[in-house]
């Protein structure tokens, strides 16, 4: 019985110290912003590997999600003669929910896991301690550019996802299913408010980008420096990021749209 409580306490303390380390890392990365301003090249390289290389999967996913929304929405709306609301349905679901959330999930799988593996391997091969030996702060030099690159990329990727999704819905609705073009775009413009829908969607994606990259970098930096440890950290990154995104999405939606 006492053993059980000891275990529980130990687990709780461990979780708390991990949380503390994660926040210290975040603080240190924020201070690394100065170093990035001095060497923008560091950020540029990371935006390439984190953002640009993720464009393809985001573009394809966005297009197909939009097309499926168009098909399914048309099926349901046409049952009671509301096909003209297809544009509004596709755009509202993309801009408010699917754009930010699916982008963040794909980002965690495509870029977050890569970040964790890269940093974990750097740690395992003692490259990070090597930098420290040369009096270079690895948190500023290696981690901070990756963090800000992810933070910057996710909102742009989410906007791209939503735009291509709307295009996909329009291709299916306007092209294949002959929904009236004017009604499609007009219904969308009347129903979607810039402040209420678009800006809130962007805020969501900023939060998701922040959380996903933070988790990915912390898991890589905090991993056990063995091949097994890196593999576990990568798994944890994807699982924790996805859960955090879905949980936060509920909280943000409840705060914003209620």
């Amino acid at each position: 019985m006492i053993g059980f409580f000891a275990k529980l306490g130990g687990w709780g303390l461990q979780a708390l110290t991990r949380l503390g380390r994660a926040h210290l890392l975040l603080l240190s990365m924020m201070r690394g912003l100065l170093e990035i301003l001095r060497r923008p090249r560091l950020l540029l390289d990371q935006v390439f590997s984190v953002g640009v290389l993720t464009i393809l999967i985001i573009a394809v996913a966005g297009l197909f999600v939009g097309m499926v929304l168009g098909l399914q929405g048309f099926y349901i709306l046409s049952r009671f003669g509301g096909e003209t609301a297809l544009g509004l349905m596709v755009a509202a679901s993309l801009v408010r929910e699917l754009g930010p959330v699916l982008t963040a999930l794909l980002f965690a799988g495509r870029a977050g896991s890569a970040l964790t593996a890269e940093i974990g391997l750097m740690k395992a091969t003692e490259q990070l301690s090597g930098l420290e030996m040369m009096a270079v702060n690895p948190e500023h030099r290696v981690l901070a550019p990756r963090f800000f690159a992810g933070f910057l990329s996710v909102p742009l990727l989410a906007a791209l996802f939503s735009m291509l999704g709307v295009m996909g819905g329009w291709m299916v609705g306007g092209g294949m299913l002959s929904v009236d073009q004017g009604a499609f775009w007009n219904g969308m413009q009347n129903g979607i408010d810039f402040r209420e829908d678009i800006i809130n969607g962007v805020i969501k994606s900023v939060v998701f980008g922040f959380v996903c990259t933070w988790i990915a970098i912390f898991q890589g930096y905090d991993c056990v420096p063995t091949s097994e440890g890196v593999s576990r950290a990568t798994t944890r990154t994807v699982v924790h990021s996805s859960l955090a995104v879905l949980g936060l999405d509920f909280v943000l939606t409840a705060l914003m749209f209620s």
Partner: peptide
């Protein structure tokens, strides 16, 4: 790399502009 990052930034901003002008009111 510089060109690609520039293209990425431009694409993202175009998408935001599209959402603002074409999708919203």
């Amino acid at each position: 790399i510089e060109i690609w990052v520039g293209v990425f930034m431009a694409l993202g901003l175009v998408a935001l502009f599209f959402l603002a002008m074409q999708v919203s009111n």
